[in-house]
C-alpha cells in the first residue's frame, strides 16, 4: 500500500518537475521532497465474534452501541434514545411487532448513524442487533 503510494508520488513528482524545468528553469527545484521515511501502521480494530455472544442487552450495548452509536446516544445529555439504558432503549422496540421496531428500522433503512450508515459497513453488527430484537430484546 505504502509502496504503491510512494511509486505514484515519485511518478507525479517526476512528471511535474519535468514540466517546470522546461518552462521556467527555477534556480532550485521546489517540488515535493520528503524529509524522512515515516512508518505508519494501522491498528486493527478488534472485530467482534458475534457468533459466540449471547443475545442480551449488555452484549448489544458493549459491542454494537458502544462502538457505533455512543458518541451521540450515550450519557444523560445524549439524543434519544439513550442506548446506554435498557428501559430507554426498549421504548424503541415494538414488542407487538418486533421486526418493525424503530430501533431496527433506524439502522436497517440506513438512517443511523446519520452520515455513515452502519448497514453499509458492519453487516454483522446489524445482524446481531436484529437477532437480539427478534428474540424479544432480552435484558
Amino acid at each position: 500500500m505504502l509502496y504503491l503510494r510512494l511509486t505514484v508520488l515519485i511518478a507525479l513528482v517526476a512528471a511535474c518537475s519535468r514540466a517546470i524545468i522546461s518552462e521556467r528553469e527555477p534556480a532550485q527545484s521546489l517540488e515535493y521532497r520528503s524529509c524522512q521515511v515515516i512508518k505508519e501502521e494501522m491498528i486493527e480494530v478488534r472485530t467482534v465474534d458475534y457468533e459466540s455472544l449471547e443475545k442480551n442487552f449488555q452484549n448489544v450495548k458493549d459491542n454494537v452501541f458502544k462502538n457505533h452509536c455512543a458518541s451521540c446516544h450515550f450519557g444523560p445529555d445524549a439524543y434519544l434514545p439513550h442506548l446506554d439504558d435498557y428501559a430507554a432503549t426498549l421504548e424503541y422496540v415494538n414488542l407487538n411487532s418486533l421486526s418493525t421496531s424503530r430501533l431496527l428500522l433506524s439502522v436497517e433503512k440506513g438512517t443511523m448513524p446519520p452520515s455513515s450508515p452502519l448497514m453499509s459497513r458492519e453487516k454483522e453488527a446489524v445482524a446481531f442487533l436484529r437477532a437480539w430484537v427478534l428474540e424479544g430484546a432480552q435484558r
Binding site: M1, L2, R5, Y32, R33, S34, C35, Q36, I38, E40, E41, M42
Partner: peptide, 9 residues
C-alpha cells in the same frame, strides 16, 4: 524545506 506527509493510511 522538505515535507512530511502523515495520516496517509
Amino acid at each position: 524545506a522538505c515535507e512530511d506527509r502523515l495520516l496517509i493510511g
